[in-house]
Nucleic acid binder design. Structure first.
Lengths: 336, 336
DNA sequence: TTGAAAGCGCTAACAT
DNA sequence: ATGTTAGCGCTTTCAA
């Protein structure tokens, strides 16, 4: 039933090599022969079998993407830019959504390897030994997107400078007269972005000679609910912070909702600053001031670097650091 | 460099068929031989090439998914459930994000076919002739997820009853004393869900003997910005509706923001009802009352039906209609 | 400018 | 219980 190159060859009265040539726009095909073959392809609704092609060419044009949670605003945006850039370059993406499940991640890595993907993009940085080991035996290129691999894994990454970004943000808060600055952070054990953003916060505080107040520091998993719960715990303290910096927009929105649900106002009672500058910043009121990551550029560059590596024009990139900036909206007020 | 089944066979001192047998957990392998082969596989870090396997088995375990916009709250949730259910059944998903671009859709359909996907899920229902034609010549199963194919395309679909859902919602508004009921709809030209939801709205109005007021009716593309703009146009009318029903949560949130930005209150001045009951309903304040689609079930059943068709246990399903219900939160008030 | 033939890595009869 | 062999549908030398 399924028609193959041989059927086309027969109908056009040529050999399969000739069909292959017109399929691949090869030279050395007489115009009339080419036309006849094209006609046969059309007549038969023939579509070449790229599995067979991949087998001989050892190239699938497949990119495996591993994301921690595609239903999240930051990841779904990034993924959509990755998809677009890949498709523009005639690559297809296979997605693995691991929801923080490292077994699932290892399994996906394995499956992607079996599927002979030409390369992988990892948007997740929790690691364990088996994953590290797997990655180090891998011969295809991998790039980390908005995540940094642990030192033992030698893969390029596309990122902003997380520590500097957090530092700059907190410094800005200080310049606005804030001294009671709460922090809702990400996981600092296994996640380098979590560590770096926290380090930036601490350093900015130290530079401004502000003592850190553990009452206003909490850590979560970047989700809205985490932000909500942590903010609630802040609200239970004796004294309130004048501003809270959350290292994801989702957590900042969670904090916002907690504040509003407790009949306080943003930014009149408490100011709020998020991180990522994802779409959600403009879906809430007040609109969220947020540290901007160039999401589109991050997604696109990850793909571009990966493709360059795949196609052998390895640029020897180790790490790409992109610009960040604070985008001011309505959730932050000056105390001056 | 890449190690294959032959290398394993040599190292284990057996034939490639034996290796193949242990790879596929075949019977008729002596325990000690099996162990030796497993050892060789481990020693060599061998991973079977599923491209080659697919070529002979004529089965890729790949599902192609076409979505209109994965950065949207409804689609990214649905996609994440699809991914989970597929992965649970050892299928991988290839995603094509078409952003309403029908050329891109046709191209993806073609590429998916070349890649020999075992089946496709389409979460989009705009059609044109070439796509219809392509779909009708396709011999692999396709299921429409939260979308209905046009009559000429004979594929199963998983849906709620959109017309009934809209009807029930509007009837409920009437029962709460509302008679000035605005409507923010989806595209009604090529999109059947758009048509059905609008039809449900009109019928409920007719049943309640309420005249339709075109001042309060607008159509958009299901996005937040559309909802915002349409709501703004309603606000410019002489009289305001007491409630507005938007056929996507994103549009409802857009409407909410427009209202808030214009210093009116929800639900005191205008009530709001959304559609989908996606995550965004709980990220805004007031929380959005919304017509619930069973997103998880829709995603999972789409995959299950598709896999059944792929694996030949065709259940002869034409259409699956799932239950809807209105989830009441804080954006709708009673006038009674 | 075209065709014949080898082979990509694997599975699945068929032999043994 | 194991090995031999013929493909799967294509690309790609190489020869004509």
């Amino acid at each position: 039933m399924p028609v193959n190159i041989k059927d086309v060859a027969e109908r056009a009265g040529v050999s399969i090599s000739t069909v292959s040539r017109v399929l691949n726009n090869g030279k050395y095909v007489k115009p009339e022969v080419r036309a006849a073959v094209k006609q046969a392809i059309e007549d038969l609704d023939f579509v070449p079998n790229s599995i067979a092609r991949s087998l001989v060419r050892k190239k699938t044009n497949l990119i495996g993407v591993i994301a921690s949670d595609i239903s999240t605003s930051f990841f779904s945006s990034t993924l959509s830019y990755i998809e677009e850039e890949a498709s523009r370059n005639r690559y297809n993406i296979l997605v693995g959504n691991i929801k923080e499940n490292l077994d699932k991640e290892l399994n996906y890595l394995q499956v992607f390897k079996e599927m002979q993907v030409d390369g992988m993009i990892i948007m997740h940085e929790m690691m364990n030994k088996p994953i590290e080991r797997f990655l180090s035996t891998l011969t295809i290129p991998v790039v980390f997107c908005s995540a940094k691999p642990s030192a033992s894994v030698n893969c390029p990454s596309v990122n902003i400078n997380d520590k500097q970004a957090a530092y700059d943000t907190v410094k800005h808060l200080v310049s606005l007269g804030h001294r009671n600055i709460g922090f809702i952070g990400g996981d600092t054990r296994e996640i380098s972005t979590g560590q770096h953003r926290y380090a930036g916060y601490l350093e900015a505080l130290a530079d401004a000679e502000i003592a850190v107040n553990p009452d206003w520091i909490g850590f979560g998993n970047l989700k809205m609910q985490d932000g909500y719960d942590i903010m609630c715990s802040f609200l239970a303290r004796e004294q309130l912070p004048s501003v809270v910096f959350a290292v994801s927009d989702d957590m900042a929105v969670g904090a916002l909702n907690c504040i509003v649900d407790n009949k306080l106002r943003v930014p009149e009672d408490i100011s709020l600053v998020g991180f990522d500058d994802s779409g959600i910043t403009e879906t809430v009121r007040p609109k969220l001031t947020s540290l901007h990551q160039p999401i589109q550029q991050i997604g696109e560059m990850s793909v571009d670097i990966l493709i360059k590596m795949i196609e052998g024009n390895a640029p020897g990139v180790k790490e790409i650091v992109l610009h960040h900036k604070l985008v001011e909206r309505d959730s932050l007020r000056s105390l001056l």
